[in-house]
Design a protein around this nucleic acid. Structure first.
Length: 109
DNA sequence: ACTGTGACTCTAA
DNA sequence: TTTAGAGCCACAG
């Protein structure tokens, strides 16, 4: 099956469990392109809202969130993550230590 | 085929 | 610790 990497990124993100977060690099890695973190972000930017894609569970490798260029507005992503049980640090970043998604699936194909 | 753009990541200072 | 620069990949025009 030949699908655009872009679509593959969507699949990976769609598989992120609730209360868990993944970095862009993580998504790219699972998609088979460990260096395509930027492509992931660029792709998400074009994601239609009707796909139910949990893009709010995708954060930077350091646990920080996007600067406000998200679906509804600034702070929305943080609110959603907190609501799902994601632990946040006092500095406003996600606790990657405990909430980083440990995927063991095969999204590379 | 080439260039520009982007919600990225890493290393160095 | 924070800031700056370079590298990376996919997509659209």
């Amino acid at each position: 099956m030949s699908v655009s990497l872009n679509e593959k990124f969507y699949r990976v993100i769609a598989n992120i469990p609730e209360g868990r977060v993944a970095s862009y690099g993580q998504v790219a890695l699972l998609a088979g392109r460990p260096r395509a973190a930027r492509a992931v972000g660029a792709a998400l930017r074009h994601v239609p809202a009707h796909l139910e894609l949990p893009c709010h569970r995708v954060v930077f490798s350091d646990g920080s969130l996007c600067k406000g260029l998200i679906f509804g507005g600034p702070g929305i992503q943080e609110q959603l993550l907190k609501k799902e049980g994601v632990a946040f640090l006092p500095n406003g970043k996600v606790n990657m230590r405990c909430c980083l998604w440990e995927s063991s699936g095969d999204f590379s194909r």
